[in-house]
Amino acid sequence: MPDFEPRILAFACNWCSYAGADLAGISRMQYPPNLRIIRVMCSGRVDPVFILDALSKGVDGVLVLGCHPGDCHYISGNLMTERKMRWTKELIEKTGVDPRRLRLEWISASEGERFANTAKEFTDLIKKLGSIQKEEKEKIFSELKAAEKVADESRVRILMGKERELVEEGNVYGDKSTQEDFDRLMKDILDDEHVREKILQIAKEKPLSVKEISKRMNMPSQEIGKHVMWLRHKGKIALHGIKKRSPLYKTVEVPY
Protein backbone atom coordinates (compact mmCIF):
# COMPACT_ATOMS: atom_id res chain seq x y z
CA MET A 1 0.00 0.00 0.00
CA PRO A 2 2.47 2.59 -1.15
CA ASP A 3 0.16 5.58 -1.18
CA PHE A 4 -1.31 5.11 2.25
CA GLU A 5 -1.20 8.34 4.21
CA PRO A 6 -2.32 7.64 7.75
CA ARG A 7 -4.41 10.01 9.77
CA ILE A 8 -2.88 10.52 13.18
CA LEU A 9 -4.26 12.40 16.12
CA ALA A 10 -2.00 13.75 18.85
CA PHE A 11 -3.21 14.97 22.24
CA ALA A 12 -0.60 17.32 23.68
CA CYS A 13 -0.57 18.91 27.09
CA ASN A 14 -0.45 22.67 27.13
CA TRP A 15 2.56 23.10 29.38
CA CYS A 16 5.12 20.63 28.07
CA SER A 17 4.32 18.73 24.92
CA TYR A 18 2.36 21.44 23.10
CA ALA A 19 5.22 23.82 23.88
CA GLY A 20 7.59 21.12 22.60
CA ALA A 21 5.67 20.97 19.34
CA ASP A 22 5.89 24.74 19.08
CA LEU A 23 9.60 24.52 19.65
CA ALA A 24 9.88 21.98 16.83
CA GLY A 25 8.24 24.58 14.62
CA ILE A 26 10.38 27.48 15.81
CA SER A 27 13.41 25.30 15.16
CA ARG A 28 12.04 24.45 11.72
CA MET A 29 12.30 20.75 12.35
CA GLN A 30 10.54 18.77 9.69
CA TYR A 31 8.12 15.90 10.39
CA PRO A 32 5.41 14.16 8.37
CA PRO A 33 2.20 16.14 7.79
CA ASN A 34 -0.06 13.30 8.97
CA LEU A 35 -0.31 14.61 12.50
CA ARG A 36 -3.21 16.72 13.82
CA ILE A 37 -2.64 18.13 17.27
CA ILE A 38 -5.34 18.69 19.87
CA ARG A 39 -4.27 20.84 22.76
CA VAL A 40 -5.40 19.84 26.23
CA MET A 41 -4.39 21.53 29.46
CA CYS A 42 -3.01 18.31 30.88
CA SER A 43 -2.53 14.85 29.44
CA GLY A 44 -4.69 13.73 32.38
CA ARG A 45 -7.61 15.25 30.50
CA VAL A 46 -7.30 12.66 27.77
CA ASP A 47 -10.20 10.33 28.26
CA PRO A 48 -9.89 6.75 26.99
CA VAL A 49 -13.26 7.41 25.40
CA PHE A 50 -11.66 10.10 23.17
CA ILE A 51 -9.07 7.67 21.92
CA LEU A 52 -11.49 4.84 21.22
CA ASP A 53 -13.91 7.24 19.62
CA ALA A 54 -11.17 8.59 17.36
CA LEU A 55 -10.11 5.11 16.30
CA SER A 56 -13.67 4.05 15.68
CA LYS A 57 -14.13 7.03 13.39
CA GLY A 58 -11.20 6.05 11.20
CA VAL A 59 -8.16 7.67 12.82
CA ASP A 60 -5.24 5.31 12.24
CA GLY A 61 -3.16 6.15 15.28
CA VAL A 62 -3.28 8.23 18.43
CA LEU A 63 -0.38 9.86 20.22
CA VAL A 64 -0.81 11.04 23.77
CA LEU A 65 1.91 13.45 24.81
CA GLY A 66 2.53 14.78 28.29
CA CYS A 67 5.15 16.18 30.64
CA HIS A 68 7.84 13.92 32.01
CA PRO A 69 7.00 12.25 35.32
CA GLY A 70 7.57 14.75 38.11
CA ASP A 71 7.25 17.72 35.76
CA CYS A 72 3.48 17.84 35.49
CA HIS A 73 2.12 21.32 35.83
CA TYR A 74 -0.75 19.77 37.77
CA ILE A 75 1.58 17.63 39.88
CA SER A 76 0.41 14.14 39.00
CA GLY A 77 -1.93 14.35 36.00
CA ASN A 78 0.55 12.58 33.76
CA LEU A 79 0.87 9.70 36.20
CA MET A 80 -2.87 9.14 35.95
CA THR A 81 -2.54 9.29 32.18
CA GLU A 82 0.10 6.59 32.22
CA ARG A 83 -2.19 4.23 34.10
CA LYS A 84 -5.21 5.06 32.00
CA MET A 85 -3.36 4.50 28.75
CA ARG A 86 -2.30 1.06 29.91
CA TRP A 87 -5.94 0.06 30.27
CA THR A 88 -6.89 1.78 27.04
CA LYS A 89 -4.33 -0.39 25.28
CA GLU A 90 -5.83 -3.40 26.99
CA LEU A 91 -9.22 -2.43 25.63
CA ILE A 92 -7.85 -1.82 22.12
CA GLU A 93 -6.31 -5.25 22.21
CA LYS A 94 -9.74 -6.74 22.88
CA THR A 95 -11.04 -5.27 19.65
CA GLY A 96 -8.39 -6.97 17.53
CA VAL A 97 -6.73 -3.66 16.65
CA ASP A 98 -2.98 -3.48 17.15
CA PRO A 99 -2.45 -1.67 20.47
CA ARG A 100 0.65 -0.02 19.04
CA ARG A 101 -1.74 2.38 17.33
CA LEU A 102 -1.86 4.15 20.68
CA ARG A 103 1.36 5.56 22.03
CA LEU A 104 2.12 7.60 25.12
CA GLU A 105 5.26 9.75 25.16
CA TRP A 106 6.71 12.26 27.59
CA ILE A 107 7.88 15.40 25.74
CA SER A 108 9.02 18.47 27.61
CA ALA A 109 8.80 22.09 26.44
CA SER A 110 12.47 21.96 25.47
CA GLU A 111 12.29 18.73 23.50
CA GLY A 112 11.31 19.99 20.06
CA GLU A 113 13.51 17.46 18.41
CA ARG A 114 12.07 14.64 20.43
CA PHE A 115 8.64 15.75 19.33
CA ALA A 116 9.61 15.70 15.66
CA ASN A 117 11.29 12.30 16.01
CA THR A 118 8.31 10.85 17.79
CA ALA A 119 6.01 12.09 15.06
CA LYS A 120 8.24 10.58 12.42
CA GLU A 121 8.68 7.23 14.10
CA PHE A 122 5.00 6.91 14.90
CA THR A 123 3.94 7.85 11.37
CA ASP A 124 6.34 5.25 10.00
CA LEU A 125 4.96 2.65 12.34
CA ILE A 126 1.37 3.40 11.41
CA LYS A 127 2.26 3.38 7.75
CA LYS A 128 3.70 -0.07 8.28
CA LEU A 129 0.59 -1.19 10.14
CA GLY A 130 -1.60 0.16 7.37
CA SER A 131 -5.00 1.72 7.48
CA ILE A 132 -7.25 0.84 10.36
CA GLN A 133 -10.00 0.46 7.77
CA LYS A 134 -8.08 -1.98 5.64
CA GLU A 135 -10.19 -5.00 6.37
CA GLU A 136 -13.58 -5.75 7.91
CA LYS A 137 -14.10 -2.08 8.51
CA GLU A 138 -17.56 -2.44 9.94
CA LYS A 139 -16.51 -5.14 12.32
CA ILE A 140 -13.49 -3.23 13.59
CA PHE A 141 -15.51 -0.09 14.07
CA SER A 142 -18.24 -1.82 15.97
CA GLU A 143 -15.63 -3.54 18.12
CA LEU A 144 -14.12 -0.17 18.87
CA LYS A 145 -17.53 1.27 19.65
CA ALA A 146 -18.07 -1.51 22.17
CA ALA A 147 -14.69 -0.81 23.72
CA GLU A 148 -15.55 2.87 23.89
CA LYS A 149 -18.74 2.06 25.79
CA VAL A 150 -16.76 -0.10 28.19
CA ALA A 151 -14.40 2.78 28.80
CA ASP A 152 -17.44 4.92 29.50
CA GLU A 153 -18.94 2.53 32.10
CA SER A 154 -19.00 4.22 35.45
CA ARG A 155 -17.31 1.39 37.31
CA VAL A 156 -14.48 1.35 34.76
CA ARG A 157 -14.05 5.09 34.99
CA ILE A 158 -14.11 4.99 38.78
CA LEU A 159 -11.40 2.37 38.95
CA MET A 160 -9.20 3.98 36.32
CA GLY A 161 -9.44 7.20 38.22
CA LYS A 162 -8.78 5.57 41.58
CA GLU A 163 -5.95 3.26 40.58
CA ARG A 164 -3.07 5.43 41.68
CA GLU A 165 -4.69 6.25 44.99
CA LEU A 166 -5.54 2.62 45.72
CA VAL A 167 -2.12 1.28 44.78
CA GLU A 168 0.16 4.05 45.97
CA GLU A 169 -1.61 5.92 48.73
CA GLY A 170 -4.03 3.44 50.25
CA ASN A 171 -7.82 3.18 50.25
CA VAL A 172 -10.42 4.57 52.64
CA TYR A 173 -9.37 2.00 55.22
CA GLY A 174 -5.72 2.98 54.82
CA ASP A 175 -4.86 -0.31 53.09
CA LYS A 176 -2.76 -0.39 49.92
CA SER A 177 -3.60 -2.73 47.11
CA THR A 178 -0.74 -4.48 45.33
CA GLN A 179 -0.44 -3.74 41.61
CA GLU A 180 -1.10 -7.42 40.86
CA ASP A 181 -4.33 -7.43 42.84
CA PHE A 182 -5.53 -4.28 41.22
CA ASP A 183 -4.64 -5.50 37.75
CA ARG A 184 -6.54 -8.70 38.32
CA LEU A 185 -9.62 -6.80 39.47
CA MET A 186 -9.44 -4.34 36.60
CA LYS A 187 -8.94 -7.06 34.02
CA ASP A 188 -11.95 -8.95 35.34
CA ILE A 189 -14.08 -5.85 35.20
CA LEU A 190 -12.94 -4.98 31.68
CA ASP A 191 -13.63 -8.55 30.58
CA ASP A 192 -17.13 -8.54 32.09
CA GLU A 193 -18.09 -5.16 30.77
CA HIS A 194 -16.70 -5.97 27.34
CA VAL A 195 -18.74 -9.17 27.15
CA ARG A 196 -21.86 -7.27 28.20
CA GLU A 197 -21.32 -4.57 25.59
CA LYS A 198 -20.79 -7.19 22.93
CA ILE A 199 -24.00 -8.94 23.94
CA LEU A 200 -25.91 -5.68 23.67
CA GLN A 201 -24.42 -5.07 20.26
CA ILE A 202 -25.21 -8.52 18.98
CA ALA A 203 -28.77 -8.55 20.28
CA LYS A 204 -29.51 -5.13 18.86
CA GLU A 205 -30.68 -6.22 15.43
CA LYS A 206 -32.99 -9.05 16.29
CA PRO A 207 -33.97 -11.07 19.33
CA LEU A 208 -31.51 -13.86 20.07
CA SER A 209 -31.29 -16.72 22.49
CA VAL A 210 -28.45 -17.13 24.95
CA LYS A 211 -27.20 -20.03 22.87
CA GLU A 212 -27.19 -17.97 19.68
CA ILE A 213 -25.37 -15.12 21.37
CA SER A 214 -22.77 -17.40 22.83
CA LYS A 215 -22.22 -19.07 19.49
CA ARG A 216 -21.63 -15.71 17.88
CA MET A 217 -19.28 -14.71 20.65
CA ASN A 218 -17.64 -18.09 20.87
CA MET A 219 -18.10 -18.25 24.61
CA PRO A 220 -19.83 -20.79 26.84
CA SER A 221 -23.61 -20.21 27.14
CA GLN A 222 -23.37 -20.58 30.88
CA GLU A 223 -21.25 -17.47 31.14
CA ILE A 224 -23.21 -15.51 28.55
CA GLY A 225 -26.44 -16.44 30.30
CA LYS A 226 -25.27 -14.94 33.58
CA HIS A 227 -24.46 -11.70 31.82
CA VAL A 228 -27.78 -11.69 29.98
CA MET A 229 -29.60 -12.12 33.30
CA TRP A 230 -27.60 -9.25 34.73
CA LEU A 231 -28.38 -7.04 31.72
CA ARG A 232 -32.03 -7.95 31.97
CA HIS A 233 -32.00 -7.13 35.65
CA LYS A 234 -30.58 -3.72 34.75
CA GLY A 235 -33.20 -3.19 32.05
CA LYS A 236 -30.63 -3.11 29.24
CA ILE A 237 -31.96 -6.18 27.53
CA ALA A 238 -35.53 -7.45 27.46
CA LEU A 239 -37.27 -10.73 26.93
CA HIS A 240 -38.65 -10.80 23.41
CA GLY A 241 -40.59 -14.01 22.94
CA ILE A 242 -39.64 -17.62 23.18
CA LYS A 243 -38.50 -19.81 20.31
CA LYS A 244 -39.04 -23.49 21.00
CA ARG A 245 -37.62 -23.62 24.49
CA SER A 246 -35.17 -20.76 24.18
CA PRO A 247 -36.15 -17.36 25.53
CA LEU A 248 -35.08 -14.61 23.13
CA TYR A 249 -33.58 -11.34 24.26
CA LYS A 250 -33.28 -8.02 22.51
CA THR A 251 -31.29 -4.97 23.45
CA VAL A 252 -33.41 -2.17 24.84
CA GLU A 253 -32.86 0.98 22.81
CA VAL A 254 -32.48 3.88 25.16
CA PRO A 255 -34.99 6.50 24.03
CA TYR A 256 -32.79 9.54 24.44
Partner: peptide, 17 residues
Amino acid sequence: GPTGGMVLRPSDYDIPK
Protein backbone atom coordinates in the same frame (compact mmCIF):
# COMPACT_ATOMS: atom_id res chain seq x y z
CA GLY B 1 -35.00 -13.91 41.47
CA PRO B 2 -32.26 -13.79 38.84
CA THR B 3 -34.38 -15.05 35.96
CA GLY B 4 -37.49 -13.10 36.90
CA GLY B 5 -39.34 -16.30 37.72
CA MET B 6 -38.59 -18.14 34.50
CA VAL B 7 -37.23 -21.63 34.99
CA LEU B 8 -33.99 -21.72 32.98
CA ARG B 9 -31.22 -24.22 33.14
CA PRO B 10 -27.80 -22.78 33.92
CA SER B 11 -25.81 -24.39 31.10
CA ASP B 12 -27.54 -22.61 28.24
CA TYR B 13 -30.45 -20.69 29.77
CA ASP B 14 -32.97 -22.69 27.85
CA ILE B 15 -36.30 -23.65 29.36
CA PRO B 16 -36.01 -27.25 30.51
CA LYS B 17 -38.48 -29.86 29.28
